[in-house]
Nucleic acid binder design. Structure first.
Length: 996
RNA sequence: GCGCAUGUGGUGAAAUUGGUAGACACGUCAGACUUAGGAUCUGAUGCCGUAAGGUGUGGGGGUUCGAGUCCCUCCAUGCGCACCA
């Protein structure tokens, strides 16, 4: 009987599905365990080999925990709202719901092929009205909350209204940037609309005018984490700043708790560091500099104008040589002198003309302009010139800085560039060539701080600043409130209605606010969402209008892990009993790419829900395991070559989603023989031969090519490839005139040189491998084990199918322990001959092999070291083969060990052995250490730390004299002959070291 | 620039606490069985050397009886952040 993985896998997948063995109940006497995967966005591309890595890892863990006697929640669902589906709809007119449904089917089929143990009865889809009803409901809870800084938690907005009615917001003490301060009486006299407007400054979900990241190509605003280097993360389209009314999550209020919470969770240091970095906490002081008297606000008697700055280094106050305002700073127009006004206006025009992208790209370029105004150093009264410059950001701190050129490189460069004299306050630490940000220096030229070490001076300066009443200590965060609205169709509608232009929540009884059907997905008037076009939906009675924005992609994913606990509940987002029972996610497996997006948002939402009493835990994920990315090999062409386009790239029919990174367009040539992809990169412009030299890399997509050499593409081969390619995308090439050469080489052959680069696997790079192909060839069990065998789960690694044969061989070898090709079943429950012990009783060697595996595999599984666990299986099967062990007593426990890794073959053989229940009902084999203990052990003996020989001793020997060892060991005898022995060291029962 | 990782054979990688470096697998070589082998099995395989032996975990230095592991320093690669005051 052969190992027929196709039939076996099909049979058991069907069986598991029909019997629902993986369905899990919310009540069980067993302890609970929650193993969660980051649910996928069902893209049209389907799964590639990189996707399942984390799913397999978590599935192994879930299956392992079940066998260990836990009630395991291991669900899966789909993050089915999102931009790509809508972009696709725009192009094809297909409703996103339809394409999403289709994509989910593909995903589901691919996932089922791999044999996961998900409880599909708990599947969630964020685009399902019965799901987003609760997304909207949670949004309203957040909308109806404010953050009490004294209690450091969210509270109901009703509580705040009560406070306002009693004391107004004066007691608030300027903690919140509100439109105005008011007393209780004033509050009571405000109209309802005014009250609502004021409350908006407090709500945790609020709408406000603000600068947003506007992406014209996608027709929507984006959150900060969705913008990478001035371009949209998805699609790589340019992003500009724009003032718009938007919804926000007041995540900044949770900055401190999001930081503190990291102490309690088991995330990797890198992940924690990334989150800390994103939150960007810094301690410092805010202080005011008075502008010279001539610049007081109005006439003689008015209070002088002040510039408020933020600094983390108040100790350097005497080193301030100039001040810089962000060009957008509101004070600029007031303080500029007549003489400087033309220069300033010119500079402002220049700044406005520059996109964020340019600003970021040209960081090194130093620009700025003197305002003509001077500020006074509050301690020594020195006059300090005030400049404006791009390098100071309006959005951070106060939008103004005190510049200390001897301590800050940017300030130093600026001072050098504009010839501003530099004061040295750090003595020898400053060499005049570059700034030195040290804290070790002893201050000089620093008034009352002279002779004080900078480290200590910070505290002294802070005290002095507060004492003089010119400022106070302040903690700042880089993180901003998260933009929460999108001008798109395919997302959750806001449960918000405008009455007289004031936002009101929809009555909870009316949820969900369903997404209406539209015929046309293009933007509404004035860059509004497509929903704005459906007037019959927008306009309710009495001039009331619906909010037409939709929620961003991270809305639904910020709480889905809670919905799995009670997915069919129509009364609540989840029964409190269910959330109490399942509690935190014990193990969360997913990629690092969500470090600052999804993970922060879900942590915040959980904290809000916890503050409001809906759940009992305020960190959603107890332990996070980041699977590494599986990278693909992309081969780049590095020689000279050229493509000439007859048409502008914009006229080519290319899926816009594939046009990553600003119109570059990608073509890959796949070498099917070797499994490598060869990729060229073609800039998205018409270009001619002479332009080529500046392009180091060029990609070509979609031409399938058969070549023998993996580093050489000949011109002829490439032409052949274009001819051979019968994919639809060939259409693109028919519009291309390709010319490429160089290569004048040894034998005059024209060729293109390739170098290869390892990058993230993605459809647009054409370096993906579909798991179905591998499963078809080797089976799901082989695929699962191979993905784990590849290396540590947490590590990124290039995909390479070379080693898969080895894993497949292992499974076949395992099969042969049970079946002989000709004889059929060969396992024994009774001794086959009188010479062997009766009853199938296993020998000590066999038991040792088994229990060694139980120990090693159990430990490895526990710590997610799956690659070494797979190795341990191989060792075990090799040893059993050598021992010719076919005893059920040994083989059955081995199958249970194997079941998490290769569930199909384990299940099949388990049944072949005569079991009638599925393996899920089995118990993980108990480790009997007694089988591992030996009475004697061979110890390595080293002399002076160098391994020389071995010696066999009884196990219980803790100490031994050198002379005794020397008695029957020639090597030791020789070594100690004429030398005095200093000491002998017995190391942890592992080895013996003799020092002579 | 700042922060965080990681550097071990031809390749993917093991080595849980400082204790026989290279488990396991790929690849390669040799052999067996075969009409055949892209099936299966056996053996060899870090490097230098016929061998004895020497040498070896990015480079240099240190601690230790003993270092892949700890400390210092330099180098390389990857990831994250990036005018954040």
């Amino acid at each position: 009987m052969e190992y027929n993985y196709r039939d076996i896998e099909k049979k058991w997948q069907k069986e598991w599905k029909e019997s629902g063995v993986y369905h899990v109940s919310n009540s069980s006497p067993k302890p609970k365990f929650y193993v969660l995967d980051m649910f996928p966005y069902p893209s049209g591309a389907g799964l590639h080999v990189g996707h399942p890595l984390g799913y397999i890892a978590s599935d192994i863990y879930a299956r392992y925990k079940r066998l260990k006697g836990f009630n395991v929640l291991h669900p899966m669902g789909y993050d089915s709202f999102g931009l790509p589906a809508e972009q696709y709809a725009l192009e094809t007119g297909q409703h996103p719901a339809v394409t999403t449904e289709k994509n989910i089917e593909t995903f589901r089929q691919q996932l089922e092929n791999i044999g996961f143990s998900f409880d599909w009865s708990r599947e969630v889809r964020t685009s399902d009205p019965s799901y987003y009803k609760w997304t909207q409901w949670i949004f309203l809870q957040i909308f109806n909350s404010w953050f009490d800084k004294k209690e450091n938690k969210a509270r109901s907005i009703e509580d705040l209204i009560e406070i306002f009615e009693q004391t107004g917001n004066i007691a608030d003490n300027g903690q919140r940037q509100t439109q105005r301060e008011f007393s209780a009486n004033e509050w009571k006299n405000y109209s309802d609309d005014e009250k609502q407007e004021l409350l908006m400054d407090y709500r945790l979900a609020y709408s406000a005018f603000g600068e947003v990241n506007w992406c014209e190509a996608l027709g929507t605003v984006l959150a900060n984490d969705e913008v990478v280097n001035g371009a949209s993360e998805r699609g790589g389209h340019p992003v500009v700043k724009k003032k718009m009314r938007q919804w926000y999550m007041r995540i900044t209020d949770y900055a401190e708790r999001l930081l503190d919470g990291l102490e309690q969770v088991d995330f990797s240091d890198a992940m924690k560091e990334m989150q800390r970095n994103w939150i960007g906490r810094s301690e410092g002081a805010e202080m005011e500099f008075i502008l010279t008297p001539s610049l007081s606000a109005g006439g003689e008697g008015d209070a002088p104008r002040k510039i408020k700055v933020y600094t983390t280094r108040p100790d350097t106050i005497f080193g301030v040589d100039f001040m810089v305002l962000a060009p957008e700073h509101e004070l600029v127009k007031d303080i500029v002198t007549e003489a400087q006004r033309p220069a300033i206006d010119e500079y402002l025009t220049y700044v406005k003309s520059r996109s964020d992208r340019e600003r970021m790209a040209e960081v090194k370029q130093i620009t700025g302009c003197f305002t003509g105004a001077y500020a006074l150093n509050p301690f020594d009264g020195k006059e300090i010139p005030v400049w404006i410059a791009e390098y100071v950001l309006a959005g951070y701190g106060t939008g103004a800085i005190m510049a200390v050129p001897c301590g800050d490189q940017r300030d130093f460069d600026f001072a050098k560039h504009f010839n501003i004299p530099i004061t040295n306050i750090i003595g020898d630490y400053f060499n005049g060539e570059e700034a030195n940000p040290t804290k070790e220096a002893t201050l000089t030229n620093s008034g009352f701080l002279n002779g004080v070490k900078m480290k200590d001076a910070i505290e002294i300066a802070n005290e002095k600043i507060e004492e003089k009443g010119i400022g106070h200590r302040k903690v700042n965060y880089k993180m901003r409130d998260a933009g929460f609205s999108r001008q798109r169709y395919w997302g959750e509608p806001f449960p918000i209605i405008y009455k007289n232009g004031v936002a009101h929540p929809v009555d909870i009884k009316e949820l969900p606010v369903e997404l209406p059907h539209v015929e046309n997905y293009s933007a509404g008037p004035e860059a509004q969402s497509p929903l704005a076009n459906i007037t019959e939906w927008v306009d309710i009675a009495n001039g009331e209008k619906r909010e037409t924005n939709t929620m961003p992609g991270y809305a639904g994913s910020s709480w889905y892990f809670l919905r799995y606990m009670d997915p069919h509940n129509n009364e609540e987002f989840a029964d409190k009993k269910a959330t109490d029972y399942w509690n935190q996610v014990d193990v969360y497996v997913g990629g690092t790419e969500h470090a600052v997006g999804h993970l922060l948002y879900s942590r915040m939402w959980t904290k809000v829900l916890c503050d409001l009493g809906y759940v009992n835990f305020d960190e959603p994920f107890k332990r996070l395991v980041n699977q590494g990315m599986i990278t693909g090999n992309s081969y780049f062409v590095t020689g000279f070559y050229a493509f000439k386009l007859e048409k502008n790239i914009d006229d080519l029919e290319i899926d816009p989603l594939d046009r990553k990174r600003f119109g570059e367009f990608l073509i890959s040539i796949e070498n099917i023989n070797t499994g490598f992809s060869t990729i060229f990169q073609l800039n998205g412009e018409d270009y001619r031969v002479e332009d080529i030299s500046e392009y180091q890399k060029t990609r070509v997509r979609y031409a399938h090519l058969f070549i023998d050499s993996k580093d050489r593409l000949t011109k002829q081969n490439l032409i052949k490839a274009f001819e051979l390619d019968n994919l639809s995308s060939v259409a693109i090439y028919e519009k291309l005139n390709y010319i490429f050469w160089d290569g004048k080489t040894e034998n005059g052959e024209e060729f293109i040189q390739c170098s290869h680069e390892v990058e993230k696997m993605s459809k647009s790079k054409y370096n993906t491998v579909n798991p179905n192909d591998l499963i078809d060839k080797y089976g799901a069990d082989t695929f699962r084990m191979y993905e784990m065998f590849l290396g540590p789960v947490e590590q990124s690694k290039p995909w390479d199918t070379k080693g898969i044969e080895g894993v497949h061989r292992f499974l076949k070898k395992l099969w042969r322990l049970f079946f002989d090709e000709t004889k059929g079943p060969i396992w024994t429950t009774l001794a086959p001959s009188p010479l062997e012990r009766a009853g199938g009783e296993a020998s000590p060697e066999e038991l040792k092999v088994l229990h060694k595996a139980i120990k090693k595999i159990g430990e490895d599984t526990e710590r997610f070291s799956y690659n070494t666990a797979v190795s341990a299986f191989m060792v075990c099967v090799n040893e059993l083969t050598d021992l010719k062990c076919h005893k059920k007593e040994i083989l059955e426990p081995l199958l249970i060990l194997l079941a998490p890794y290769a569930p199909h073959i384990a299940e099949e053989l388990y049944h072949q052995l005569g079991n009638n229940t599925t393996i899920i009902d089995a118990h993980y084999p108990k480790l009997e250490t007694k089988y591992l203990i030996e009475s004697e052990k061979e110890y390595p003996v080293s002399i002076n730390g160098k391994m020389r020989t071995t010696i066999t001793l009884p196990l219980d020997v803790q100490q031994i004299e050198v002379e005794k060892i020397a008695l029957d060991n020639e090597v030791v005898k020789k070594w100690i002959e004429d030398k005095p022995v200093r000491k002998i060291i017995f190391v942890k029962g592992k080895m013996i070291n003799i020092v002579v």
